[in-house]
Design a protein around this nucleic acid. Sequence first.
DNA 1: GTAAAGATACCTTTCGGTAGGTATCTTTCA
DNA 2: TGAAAGATACCTACCGAAAGGTATCTTTAC
Lengths: 188, 188
Amino acid sequence: MASPAYARKKQPEAVRRALLDAAARIAVEQGAPGITVQAVAEAAGVTKGGLFHHFPNKQALIEAMFADVLEQLDREIDAHMAQDQDPHGPFSRAYVETLLVGERFGVGSPFDALSVAVLAEPSLGDLWATWLRDRLVRHQDTDADPMLEVVRLATDGAWLNHVIQRTERPRLEGLREQLLNLTRQAAP
Amino acid sequence: MASPAYARKKQPEAVRRALLDAAARIAVEQGAPGITVQAVAEAAGVTKGGLFHHFPNKQALIEAMFADVLEQLDREIDAHMAQDQDPHGPFSRAYVETLLVGERFGVGSPFDALSVAVLAEPSLGDLWATWLRDRLVRHQDTDADPMLEVVRLATDGAWLNHVIQRTERPRLEGLREQLLNLTRQAAP
DNA sequence: GTAAAGATACCTTTCGGTAGGTATCTTTCA
DNA sequence: TGAAAGATACCTACCGAAAGGTATCTTTAC
């Protein structure tokens, strides 16, 4: 009589994905302290032992989740930039569109998990810093304008406020318009 | 032979202060997970029992710390505003000056504890939201301009980036100048 | 003397992590 | 082709440490 848990088919990829998604979801819904290996494993339909088969320790799990979300962010930004013809500030506009009003932004989105995770695990700050620096170097010819930096910082600020306050998705439409306009102001 | 701990004079006010300060300091230095009642009590030179005499539970301690820091922030902002003659956007300028480059609330200051605390105790988000809303209502005649909101959000963003990246205090001077200039732009 | 301030000792739960098992998949080779 | 052999995936059961919290004692202050 095999235990019911053993009856399930093996699907390492799917389980790994489920673990990463579960971690992100818990981070968003319960905040950083809610991210326990027990909770994550359970939410992914696996036991703690199963989790530790995929990740050597908790930190590795969080780092993997972080990298995963960063990758999604990367893709989304690139997609936005591909549709932008204006040579001035395309990265900054994509930044606004993606983080401020993108489908994935808002409560329950994986992106919220970024801030939660990063503030919970200070070592991740380096990853974030590296990511940002790389993108800035890559787009230095088009997005180095100080005003564009202000726009990106304001995006970060709006994002932070939203995560912290856990409010309803507010009237971001006006803010978006304004920030986008600012990216086109004072073009060289 | 009295225990050395008992030899010390009793000073409830001072101990309470020490506990709040210790909590804030630990939050800044070690992040949210470092805030344990044990660590806080120890850092304040008191035992756990002593801490629990002043605060019924951990959450109460964190909330008190949060309120305490918010109060300091309040005072500092008011002080800045008192020296500002320009009727347009004084609150937003004080916000920039205090949170971006202020001695007490710049990067590496007690204010960092706010974010950390919020993550440790998500319910605190409401407190922050309330504080901000109150100040905005109070200054709606002078600081409702959308551009001023962008300035404040950019301040939040810059602060977030520094907390996350834990970098050296970088060239904030240029950013400060720019943000202050923006508050004076497009005045009615 | 009595109440507040603080210390000591202990309890319960939960945390991250380990050990070793069992089931399933993949490769090897007759 | 197919079964043995090995590797991979996942589970059960457990551990030590540390967490938050309580009960009770001693000391100090008024």
